[in-house]
């Protein structure tokens, strides 16, 4: 996906509970939490724009975003969006998303104890000698798969919680990290029930 306006990081756009004036709302620094929202949306032209446009227009952050059709017969897609903000901002984001006509369901995965989050990353590492051996050893510990090899590089495929991928990437950095491609977070609930 091309980074659109929705990728604008309004880091200073967080809202304090009752700021001095509506115009001061963007300048207060308050504790931000990460939140993952799973949305079921009508699979129609422009639906992604509706969601991303809402984030851009209201100054919310998007940390990651994934989208794909998940049910062809009922024309639904699933969007998973990772965002950050003070608790009442997250509440507002959920309410605003629920208001979009094309959005059928909004689920706050972070607040759900049964929520599972996974991400996939492709990681290219270049190196020789002991760095190369070490990269392979670490990848083994993380249960990453080697999906491409040359005499001086590997491409690893790794899945897991975003924090696991972060740790893996940090370990690879001194070993010759060249390039990183991440899917963004996917989510689902434990148990037999569907969204």
């Amino acid at each position: 996906m091309k980074p659109g306006a929705g990728w604008f990081k309004g880091g200073d756009m967080t809202t304090a509970p009752n700021p001095a004036s509506a115009y001061d709302m963007s300048h207060e620094d308050v504790v931000e939490n990460l939140a993952t929202f799973a949305l079921l949306v009508d699979n129609e032209a422009g639906v992604l724009h509706r969601v991303v446009g809402l984030f851009a227009a209201r100054g919310y952050n998007i940390d990651s975003l994934t989208v794909a059709e998940t049910d062809r017969r009922s024309h639904t897609s699933r969007i998973t969006i990772v965002t950050r903000g003070a608790p009442h901002v997250l509440e507002q984001i959920e309410a605003q998303l629920s208001k979009v006509v094309s959005v059928r369901r909004v689920h706050d995965v972070t607040r759900d104890p049964n929520g599972i989050e996974r991400e996939l990353a492709l990681v290219k590492v270049r190196g020789t000698g002991t760095d190369r051996v070490e990269a392979l050893r670490v990848s083994d510990i993380f249960r990453a798969k080697v999906i491409d090899t040359t005499s001086e590089s590997f491409v690893f495929e790794i899945t897991g919680a975003p924090s696991k991928i972060d740790s893996f990437v940090e370990l690879m950095r001194p070993l010759g990290l060249v390039e990183l491609s991440r899917t963004g977070v996917l989510s689902i609930e434990r148990g037999a029930e569907g969204m």
Binding site: N18, P19, A20, A22, D24, H88, A95, S98
Partner: peptide, 24 residues
Amino acid sequence: GRLDAFSPNSKKIHIDIDASSINK
């Protein structure tokens, strides 16, 4: 007007058809 001085000592009831208006 100034939000941090807005009706400082009241309990507030808000009735609205739009859930996103509440606590905005």
